[in-house]
Design a binder for these strands. Structure first.
Length: 804
DNA sequence: AGCACGCCGACT
DNA sequence: GTCGGCGTGCTC
């Protein structure tokens, strides 16, 4: 019987975004399963693909069908659950199925391709310039020819048939192995060997006796040298005699750097107890209920998570815990490791490709039961998920910014339906959408109103910086913040200073003509980095050295401007020369492990002040912090984003929560130029619900979520006119096809109007119910794929965008 | 997306 | 005459 595999090929393009049929060679009938990666011929080249279905017939004429070239996995890398999740993602987010499949795997399992040039004739026949590359072997890497700009010569050789170029799929995912020694399992057998040893070989006799006490056990050679007190030659001799053998053992690269002490469950408050009981009840009933756990900062949400996970493990299930990348601090992961020990895998962007792959395999092979990770950990290949948690559920990092543009919350809810398990969305400042859903009983609301250790909430003072300016204080520190800092330094208590960096970074400005140095590829000013004296574009990565004179007017009065953390650090040193400062920003934390190291320095009391951006707003829990200063609260308030008030409120509440979490009372000082704004006033009051009510009113007025859904269509082209014209066509098309009560805003320029040399325009769709939306967008893409893409137009559709 | 095929202009 | 430009169309 013939067997056909339906394969999604690794080519991200609309015309090939469907399964292709391949013949499964008879030898592999038992080997190939759904979810395996395979190598297949596709047109003139070889590509990687995923088997998504097995069938016994096909509609494709048999002369067109080609066989699978190679199987890359003995065990499928994707389960049936993941295959159907990919289909759902494809329609839900309008992406290529291959993108949806790839996002579920660690990058080590995604294909890498390499062009290889094969020599087809005798070396002497070949163009002598090319011949140099084939001295060692008949194969050479295509890149070498590119580097030496010999592509013309190469092409001629291809035309003459002297060489052949092939696209090869590189096998990925190296399993790390170490050599270990396994002692023979039978003591009697070892005893026999002992008889053969010469009486003079004292060391060998010593080792063989030690081996008799460790029959069948596995050691690293080093362990044996140390424990038995012998050297490599002695061990070698006994292995040759057969008392033990070398084996290859799979190892996992261990991303944890230090050991942690075991901890046990803490006593819960009545509130925590009640929240937990609701969650465990849903777990017992195998009910896919979504809980919104709204707990103020310091109310002990994490302890509720830990005990709920404990319950899942006791029921023989697994648990997925998501945290925003930025708060995936060592403190957080340690807390999980100390509770669940070796049962925990960690997934975040700080791990190497190999480490991520190893953590993934631990999950897939069932070696761990809990995963703590950033967004993509929602795809953890567990088979019996008992609980999914999203901590800080309001964070925008849960939405992926490129294809597939999924929200981890939606995937979590999808998987919870599949596994019949609850989801916990936890936050001190829930996203408006989530709180609204809880109010409508779509989610079950659980509330923690008290701090777990009964500490008072910190006092929050708002300082009007306009008044400071009137009083002649032109520095970035208000008098009351300076006073409060001085007090803490005297009392040897710790300070956290938070710089709301968005729109606040340092740029280079000419004081004569006002020119700000811009990125040549994007419509964005370059950011100054002191450590290498360079200007860098944070969007496309372009960098250049700081110019000595203004590129516009040649004036030499050009200098960096703005308030980066480096500038603040300098200012603090002027005020308090004796203060010990730890600065955390992109510059100081870019190296691996730097984040952890800096927090260790601060946590152990070797510094007085922790100065940083967004990355210090969450998860920090140090008992000695009694003062939190927010240098400028309103920089995030005036961004052209309908969520800017919500973001500001969330940020201020989060950062205030860092103070006074233990015995000492905390104080928060917020500096602002708009103290009357409700986001700032209500953050001072530390009241979520009044903020929710006020903000819901604004959203209702302006027609934004949660009252309306949003969809964004972005058009980009290297030429402004083309981008604008086609964005106009998009708007016309949408207005024609969508119903009259759907609002279509635009086309307008995107907030970053040029990125990587492409001009960007966008249309925003606001709708309540529009059954035709997905269908209309798909039609739009159809037009685009046949016609527009040839003209260099790029079209992106983002449903429920996080940034507009 | 990539790559071959195929049809037109400017060169050894 | 041929080399190479890029518009067109297909990939099981």
């Amino acid at each position: 019987m013939t067997r056909i595999a339906k394969v999604i090929v690794d080519v991200a393009a609309y015309p090939v975004d469907r399964p292709f049929d391949y013949l499964v060679p008879a030898d592999w009938h038992d080997l190939i399963e759904c979810g395996c990666r395979v190598k297949v011929p596709f047109g003139p080249r070889n590509v990687l693909g995923f088997v998504v279905e097995l069938a016994s017939e096909t509609d494709v004429p048999l002369d067109k069908i080609k066989p699978i070239t190679q199987v890359l996995d003995i065990e499928p890398v994707l389960t049936e659950e993941m295959l159907s999740l990919a289909k759902w993602l494809k329609t839900q987010t309008i992406c290529y199925e291959i993108d949806a499949l790839q996002v579920m795997l660690p990058s080590a399992l995604r294909a890498k391709y390499e062009k290889i040039v094969h020599l087809q004739v005798a070396l002497e026949q070949l163009d002598p310039i090319l011949a140099a590359f084939f001295k060692k072997s008949a194969k050479a890497n295509f890149k070498q020819f590119e580097k030496e700009s010999l592509l013309k010569e190469l092409k001629q050789a291809v035309n003459k048939g002297h060489v052949r170029i092939e696209n090869e799929v590189k096998q990925q995912g190296k399993i790390k192995e170490v050599r270990k020694v396994q002692i023979h399992a039978e003591a009697s057998y070892i005893a026999e060997i002992e008889q053969q040893i010469s009486k003079r070989a004292k060391k060998q006799i010593h080792l063989v006796q030690w081996m008799k006490a460790h029959c069948g056990e596995i050691f690293s050679p080093e362990e044996i040298y140390e424990q038995a007190g012998v050297t490599a030659t002695v061990l070698q001799a006994l292995i040759e005699m057969g008392a033990a053998k070398f084996i290859q053992e799979e190892v996992y690269r261990d991303p944890f750097t230090k050991d942690v002490a075991q901890t046990t469950a803490l006593n819960l408050t009545a509130e925590q107890e009640q929240a937990l009981s609701y969650i465990t009840a849903a777990m017992k009933k195998q009910h896919n209920e979504t809980f919104l756990l709204h707990g103020i900062t310091g109310s002990g949400k994490t302890e509720v998570y830990l005990q709920a996970i404990q319950q899942a493990l006791q029921d023989g299930k697994e648990a997925i815990m998501l945290v925003p990348e930025i708060s995936l601090t060592p403190q957080m992961t340690e807390r999980f490791r100390s509770r669940f020990g070796e049962m925990v895998a960690v997934m975040h962007s700080g791990l190497s490709v190999g480490e991520k792959y190893d953590e993934w395999r631990k999950i897939q092979q069932g070696k761990v039961k809990v995963v703590v990770g950033a967004r993509s950990a929602i795809f953890a290949p567990f088979q019996h998920v008992g609980l999914i948690i999203l901590d800080e559920e309001h964070e925008s990092t849960y939405k992926q910014e490129d294809a597939p543009r999924y929200h981890a919350r939606d995937v979590a809810i999808w998987r919870s339906k599949f596994h019949q398990c609850p989801v916990i969305l936890g936050s001190a400042t829930p996203a408006l959408e989530s709180f609204a859903r809880a109010k409508k009983n779509v989610y079950t609301l659980l509330t923690l109103k008290e701090r777990a250790k009964q500490q008072a909430l910190p006092t929050v003072e708002i300082v009007d910086m306009r008044e400071e300016l009137k009083l002649g204080n032109r520095s970035m520190f208000s008098t009351s913040l300076i006073e409060a800092m001085r007090e803490r330094l005297v009392r040897k208590e710790q300070i956290v200073l938070f710089l709301n960096r968005r729109g606040y970074s340092s740029f280079v400005l000419c004081r004569d003509c006002g020119t700000v140095v811009q990125c040549p590829n994007c419509d964005i000013s370059l950011t100054y980095h002191r450590y290498n004296e360079k200007l860098k574009c944070h969007y496309c990565g372009y960098d250049e050295y700081v110019p000595q004179s203004c590129p516009q007017c040649q004036s030499e009065h050009i200098r960096f401007f703005g308030t980066g953390t480096q500038k603040v650090e300098e200012e603090i040193y002027k005020l308090f020369p004796e203060a010990r400062i730890v600065r955390m920003d992109v510059d100081t934390t870019s190296q691996k492990g730097a984040h952890e190291q800096l927090l260790d320095i601060f946590g152990s009391g070797q510094a007085d002040i922790l100065l940083g951006t967004q990355m210090i707003a969450k998860g920090l829990d140090f008992p000695n912090i009694t003062l939190v200063g927010v240098l400028s609260a309103d920089t995030s308030l005036h961004l052209p984003d309908y969520r800017s008030s919500e973001r500001t409120f969330q940020l201020l509440t989060q950062v205030s929560g860092r103070a006074g979490r233990h015995d000492l009372l905390g104080e928060v000082i917020i500096q602002t130029y708009t103290p009357e704004h409700y986001a700032i006033e209500l953050a001072q009051a530390q009241q979520y619900e009044p903020f929710y009510t006020r903000e819901m009113y604004s959203r209702h007025q302006a027609g934004y979520p949660p009252y309306y859904y949003l969809a964004l269509v972005q058009v980009s082209h290297e030429d402004v006119i083309m981008a604008a014209e086609y964005a106009g066509r998009v708007a016309d098309y949408l207005r024609e096809k969508l119903s009259f009560n759907v609002a279509i805003i635009g086309p307008t320029t995107a907030s970053i109007s040029r990125l990587n040399n492409r001009y960007r325009y966008q249309c925003l769709i606001k709708y309540k119910v529009e059954p035709n939306l997905i269908e209309t967008l798909l039609q739009l893409i159809k037009i685009y794929r046949t016609d527009w893409s040839k003209k260099g137009i790029q079209l992106i559709v983002d449903l429920d965008p996080s940034v507009i």
